[in-house]
Design a protein around this nucleic acid. Structure first.
Lengths: 345, 345
DNA sequence: CAATCCTCTCAAAGCGCTTTGGACGGCTCG
DNA sequence: CGAGCCGTCCAAAGCGCTTTGAGAGGATTG
């Protein structure tokens, strides 16, 4: 139903070439012709067919991402926030994104198919694992890509990524707790196979070791970043033989559950228990709005999304970014959920 | 770098036609040839170029959605959950989706462009307004579409949608509160221009009227569905001259903030104040995990996403769905956040 | 044994765009 | 005045696939 180039060219008595050039800003079209074309486009509502455009040019303004999904698997709150950042930037350059849902176990296959399908200009991957097979795979695939995060033990190093300094963040947070006199510190972390979780644990461990404190594995728990998991772990820790006096949480969502467990027992945050959470700046859950405002390590997930889109797009448009690697430091924001360790410990 | 049909056909000494047919399951290819082709495909990693496929067939297995986005606008937690449902179903049919970010004020324009661009087979719209201009627009656009929700005052009625019975949900919830003896009931709702918010308010009003109770506008508040807004409204209501004894919340996220306001004042949920929230089944925030488990009107957003994908795909594949309209009833799940109205009221 | 029917394969057209390699006037310049 | 140039425009090729219409060869039929 929608009009195409050929029809438009017949209407105007011009060649398809001229119209194409007029639309794409080539200089060899007279001003008069160009405005005639633009007027006709406005009136007819003509839009170039993207598939044809892509076939002809090899690119069509789209970023690809694979979204891990499965019937039983929970969706991730952080995904929406990240997408918002990505979109915010993409819209400036008239890019859209193609989301391919994929079973978690087939992510590598989906990446490969997405790249070969030829309908994305660049690829994005996240939820990086320790030694993520997708990274070497992408290297062989000959398509621009960006990694959100970075692998831990891997021979491949020269790939473009944006990551936050997870180790540094949790190192700093732990050090603050130690300075406040805490000796037993718990960690409620994300799933153990994710690189960010590995690094956060590492940062915590490092600070403990630097200060001559033991690292107690029983205080560390990995799982889904949900309210329920935070609650469950906190309960378990409090019921343990020798509960910690401070807790690190990998997300404010986990903190939500953890705090609830404290409330239920009448324990006061910042006095009976200190807590520092990592804050991705989810708009629906602000650390300053907790009953006791939360001390956090802060880094905007949305800003990361925007930056990643920016870099992918500039690579696609050939404006550089030769495998640049970016590591963002997080901010340690001290609020009321941290306080001196209770006596008797 | 990736191999194409022509190269593959030369490798095998077969025509492109035969390979295409072998791959797409046409009967007129001998079993032997077919398996030879499949073997070669496996070995070379050949994938048909989607853009070419789309150009040739007119379809390419993609659903389009526009995502409202802007620099200052918060991302919506519910979006990710919905997307999960959509993806879960899409993957079964090897569909992907194309997300076009759009400034909220240009959503109609983006819908039009997306339809004309020809790179989606069907369109999805959500965040329906009272009299949403996108619906009549889609009607003229000659592309399959699905509306999540439905408009309120609109001359156009014959479009395919999936909606939940928002009026019924809040009617039932309100009736329960009235039966428990509540006379003053507050409502913390989503943004006032959204159809779902309008219907929820209507449902509440209806129950009040049916029971001869007055509808007090000062107890109704509209805004972003965030923790902060829930908290802010609850504080304001409690500080008012004649506070309600029960509250309806349009989301568990709003309830989160509202409950926090109650906790801060030492008010006990289910005793000093009753609360019913609408529950979209966000995995990160379960009503049964609140300090006092929440009574809710429940409906799975994820299931809605899956169903919408299913219907769009079946329309694209010509398997029917002649403008079918679906209205899902919600379940009223009674937990501990509702109780008899306190005496003295 | 010729006529017919399958079975399997192919060449070529076409989807809607971009881009290459001219072509055609009207200028300027020596 | 003819060579060269510039400003505009165009015809046609090509992107990688699907699909139409046909053909070659072998099997089946009367």
């Amino acid at each position: 139903m929608t009009i195409n180039l050929k029809q438009l060219s017949e209407m105007l008595g011009l060649s398809q070439t001229t119209i194409s050039r007029a639309l794409n800003g080539f200089p060899e079209v007279s001003a008069q012709t160009r405005s005639r074309v633009l007027k006709a486009v406005r009136e007819t509502g003509y839009r170039p067919n993207r598939a044809a455009q892509r076939l002809a040019t090899g690119r069509a303004g789209s970023l690809g991402l694979v979204m891990p999904i499965a019937a039983g698997v929970d969706s991730d709150v952080h995904f929406g926030e990240f997408l918002a950042g990505l979109g915010e930037e993409a819209i400036k350059h008239d890019f859209h994104f193609v989301i391919n849902p994929s079973a978690p176990e087939d992510e590598a296959g989906m990446v490969r198919r997405l790249a070969a399908s030829g309908n994305v200009d660049a690829l994005y991957i996240a939820y990086v694992r320790r030694d993520d097979p997708r990274i070497p795979l992408l290297h062989t695939l000959n398509i621009p890509f960006m990694v959100h995060g970075r692998a831990v033990d891997q021979s491949v190093h020269d790939y473009p990524f944006l990551d936050i300094d997870n180790t540094g963040a949790f190192h700093d947070a732990t050090r603050l707790l130690i300075q406040l006199g805490h000796r037993r510190i718990g960690l409620i972390n994300g799933p153990a196979h994710f690189a960010f979780a590995i690094r956060r644990e590492k940062g915590m461990k490092k600070a403990l070791v630097e200060n001559g404190l033991p690292f107690d594995e029983t205080l560390v728990h990995h799982g889904q970043m949900t309210d329920s998991f935070g609650h469950q772990v906190m309960e378990r820790l409090l019921d343990g033989p020798n509960p910690p006096t401070a807790i690190l949480c990998s997300s404010t969502v986990l903190a939500l559950g953890a705090v609830r467990a404290l409330d239920r027992r009448g324990l006061k945050l910042g006095r009976d228990m200190s807590l520092i959470a990592h804050d991705d700046e989810l708009p629906m859950l602000k650390p300053e709005n907790f009953s006791v405002p939360l001390t956090t390590t802060r880094s905007s997930l949305r800003a990361a999304g925007a930056r990643i889109a920016e870099r992918m797009i500039s690579r696609v448009l050939q404006n550089g970014d030769p495998a640049e690697q970016e590591l963002w430091r997080t901010e340690l924001i001290v609020r009321d959920s941290t306080g001196p360790a209770p006596r008797g410990h």
